[in-house]
Design a protein around this nucleic acid. Structure first.
Lengths: 341, 341
DNA sequence: ATGAAAGCGCTAACAG
DNA sequence: CTGTTAGCGCTTTCAT
């Protein structure tokens, strides 16, 4: 009853072996590039493989080898607009870029908070060799603690350490913010304010921290702080409150570009000009920064590189290498009109 | 030598069986929700599963069941900027949205032309139950013909039919373009031109076709056609040539927004005002359309819905249902200032 | 309703 | 260098 070939399903290793007149083990060796096979046999097997268009069955292979050649990229979904945010798009791109050169593939898990159980099950059932988790927004990553030894690399430090996760690739939000403030001071600004982000998110916290450190270093007052929630509207509101508290402020650091753009409108409403009266610096270098009026000086983050780096760290982990637990990527200040003069 | 539990690896079905005092077959039945199990046994097994935090091994399962509960989303990479294009981001989002409600996961394949062999091998080695292929840009999809019976759904009709692929989800570019032209005529424009896209890409072809049909239907001349390549620069060039041929044209349909924006600058250079002298309609409703000056009237495509629909079609195919081969999604004309008056 | 047994397609010792 | 022999963890007849 041996259904040899033809019939239907994909050709199996056994069929290749039969055709090449060798054992399955030998075919397996050839497929996996073992050096312990004679040249003639190798070519015989290879032609059988080509003739049959044989492709190894991954399930069978990973069942025994315990490796899947796949990594998961877990992203928080919140509001389904994951991809509207260039942050995620760039990370995905970076990861894809790195993986393209390898035999690994990427499984995208859009994590809808609600069903982190599904994510956890997926991670646990041997679907992937490791996971990349983006921790940009608030969110509970505690389930990761239960993924039993699965190598995980986080992008962006989580608010609270995640049990079992040691490797993090991050941008130095503190240093970047200090750099932004230094720039304002360089431009002669002395009465500085900041529109900070939510204090329950690492970027919100760290960017405020950076602002505080820098103003302190320059011997300037650090009282002008108002919080926003990273939306333009909240930026406008925060700016209005700041102006009410200190009409003579001359420099503002917003924790992201969206809020900086919001600040623009509040400043305009108050009859103040950017940058003549008030210089503004943002953070993210998002797609509106360059086209805003005036163009916004902002901190550019290497997001694609962050994705690439996360993937690299994971791959090295999977290869059994020892990898530094914290990788910090540098940022760059993009100077535009909003801080001119 | 039975390493019962503890040790290391994930708990197996066998361990659950031992703990619940039943056979592996029974545990399997419970896990797969078979009705032929007595209630007491079901709960005994379930508590064993919970106690052990058992999760079925997917490789083993799919080795025997021949199903992976995963679908691939294949996107052309060209220039690594896949995600800079909102087209792709939206498709991914739509697919994710649909899959979120199922047990399926998505494997993202960024296809770098060069290595379509890698993609093909992946598709062939039983990694996924089906594939979604985005055919937005030019590109060779012939390898899909070799994926032996793997269910495939294309997003956007391919330039030439792909062997073995019958299911396509598409936007009606022809009808949408006709709608855009009708709008220009409604606005009293009679000397119409079009900046067409590359004629080796379906959207380029179909949008020009739509323009031709509409002007013919209105009894207007169809001679004012210039080609661009979907970039702003090419749009400006095409517009300049059109003006040279017919300085008195009063309406232009550009095959995408980028070229429409390019046309703006050529019109301005010629001292013509939009919409007073020339009305302009674009296609895509990309992120610059609404903020252009003047805001651009354009055709909005339901991209997220397209992703969702592609996924739905594939899932129905996987479920063994009979699905219509061509699904056409409607478009919507977004009227803005560029065609006012 | 449940168990026993037979593999799914592959890799990995272990012999030769 | 190559073949033999065991399984990897699960589903699925076929009995019972």
């Amino acid at each position: 009853m041996s259904t040899q070939d033809a019939v239907a399903g994909a050709p199996t290793l056994e069929m290749v072996a039969a055709r090449a007149g060798v054992s399955r083990a030998t075919v397996s060796r050839v497929v996996n590039g073992s050096p312990r096979v004679s040249p003639e046999v190798v070519s015989a097997v290879q032609s059988a493989i080509e003739a049959l268009e044989y492709v190894p069955n991954r399930a069978a292979r990973s069942l025994v080898s315990r490796r899947t050649q796949a990594v998961a990229l877990v992203m928080p979904e919140s509001t389904a607009k994951v991809f509207a945010d260039p942050f995620f798009a760039s990370i995905v791109q970076g990861v894809a870029l790195c993986l393209a050169g390898t035999e690994y593939t990427m499984t995208l898990l859009i994590e809808s908070e609600v069903q982190s159980a599904k994510t956890r099950r997926f991670l646990l059932s041997g679907n992937v060799d490791g996971a990349l988790v983006v921790s940009h927004h608030v969110g509970d990553h505690s389930y990761l603690g239960l993924t039993g030894g699965l190598p995980v690399v986080m992008g962006g430090r989580p608010l609270v350490p995640v049990q079992g996760v040691r490797h993090v690739v991050d941008v130095d939000n503190v240093a970047a913010s200090e750099m932004a403030v230094d720039h304002l001071v360089d431009r002669g600004r002395r009465r500085l304010a900041t529109i900070a982000g939510p204090q329950d998110m690492p970027p919100g916290l760290d960017r405020l921290d950076g602002w505080r450190r820098a103003v302190a270093r320059h011997g300037l007052p650090d009282d002008l702080v108002e919080l926003g929630d990273f939306t333009p509207g909240s930026g406008a509101g925060a700016m209005a409150r700041l102006l009410q508290r200190e009409p003579r402020l001359d420099g503002v650091f917003a924790a992201n570009d969206q809020m900086a753009i919001g600040a623009y409108s509040a400043l305009a409403a108050a009859g103040l000009r950017v940058p003549e009266d008030v210089a503004v610096v943002g953070f993210d270098d998002d797609r509106f920064a360059a086209t805003a009026h005036p163009a916004l000086t902002t901190v550019h983050q290497p997001l694609v590189e962050m994705g690439t780096t996360m993937a690299q760290v994971l791959l090295r982990l999977l290869a059994g290498e020892d990898v530094e637990e914290r990788t910090v990527l540098g940022t760059e200040l993009v100077v535009r009109r909003s801080t001119a003069g």
